[in-house]
Design a protein around this nucleic acid. Structure first.
Length: 288
DNA sequence: CACTTGACCTGTCCGC
DNA sequence: TGCGGACAGGTCAAGT
């Protein structure tokens, strides 16, 4: 799924749904998705209550009353879906997914005392969930190297441009996707913000002017705020904590719109490969 | 160090 | 209807 807006949408949903709930049982038989031993799960999850649901970049952190934390990365196709004690009736908008859980992509099932459940689904098995002591969270590799987030209040335009100097000889798109430069951007919002700033994704970082970085900073924050407001982007498998799709794709200007008109100049949007990823631009607005 | 490419998986879609 | 290949919201470990 998930770039920052999608993970934040899941975080907000979980926060409203599972805080205070007590874990009765955890079902996990796929070590790649959840490597902790049954003994760890028994000792640090069983009878634990949910204290907080936090997020850092694209990683979710579910704090437990045992001073352990579930650290979760959804990667491409991970989902965290909560199902209440009463399931939706047939015909409900969420019916198709929620009523079928668990399914063949369910990797972990957490059952709460009130009979509600939290499912970690992941079709491609790239995602993972790990149980570690809460005090160790800042020490994991990801946390140590991940950069600042575009929406942090104290993250300035000046800092934004400075973060990129280390990646002077790579393309701006590759640099935007580098989580150690700026955290939380993925393929959708890289393309959307570069369109907003009228920058070609293959431009080398060292050729981007200060004025262009300033525009990119502003566009990136606008795009991410809008995406959070719309509950994220559901390009393929992404759903929020209640199994609902996000609607940002209805507002996308270039992403997955190849062959359609640029909303700014009406040229035809094209798709090609950049930084190893499918990339969408307006060839008239974004020149190399 | 900085940079690029392939690997990790499963499912779906598109052309033959 | 089947088969092969390309591709999919992301990181890593390798290679140069």
């Amino acid at each position: 799924m998930p770039e920052l807006p999608e993970v934040e949408t899941v975080r907000r949903g979980l926060e409203s749904l599972i805080i205070g709930k007590v874990i009765r049982q955890t079902i996990h038989d796929t070590p790649k998705s959840f490597p902790n031993s049954p003994a760890d799960v028994e000792a640090f999850m069983h009878r634990a209550s949910i204290i907080a649901v936090r997020r850092r970049a694209k990683v979710l952190l579910i704090d437990l009353s045992t001073d352990y934390t579930l650290v979760i990365h959804l990667k491409m196709t991970g989902q965290l879906v909560y199902v209440g004690e009463t399931r939706f009736g047939a015909g409900h908008p969420n019916d198709s997914l929620v009523n079928q859980l668990p399914d063949k992509s369910t990797r972990v099932t957490i059952m709460f005392d009130d009979n509600s459940q939290l499912f970690f689904n992941d079709q491609r098995k790239f995602g993972w969930m790990k149980l570690i002591p809460t005090v160790e969270v800042p020490n994991i590799d990801f946390m140590k190297k991940v950069g600042p987030e575009p929406l942090e209040a104290d993250f300035t335009m000046k800092q934004f441009a400075e973060r990129f100097t280390r990646r002077a000889n790579t393309s701006i798109k590759a640099a935007l996707l580098d989580q150690s430069v700026v955290a939380g951007i993925g393929n959708i919002y890289a393309d959307e913000s570069l369109w907003g700033a009228k920058i070609h994704p293959k431009r080398l970082v060292k050729t981007i002017t200060k004025a262009e970085f300033d525009t990119l900073y502003t566009e990136l924050r606008m795009v991410m705020n809008l995406a959070i407001e719309k509950g994220g982007s559901s390009n393929h498998t992404y759903v929020d904590a209640e199994g609902k799709r996000g609607s940002y794709m209805d507002f996308a200007r270039v992403f997955r719109r190849e062959g359609l008109e640029c909303p700014r100049c009406h040229a035809t949007i094209i798709k090609f490969k950049a930084a190893g990823r499918g990339t969408h631009i307006c060839p008239h607005c974004q020149l190399l």
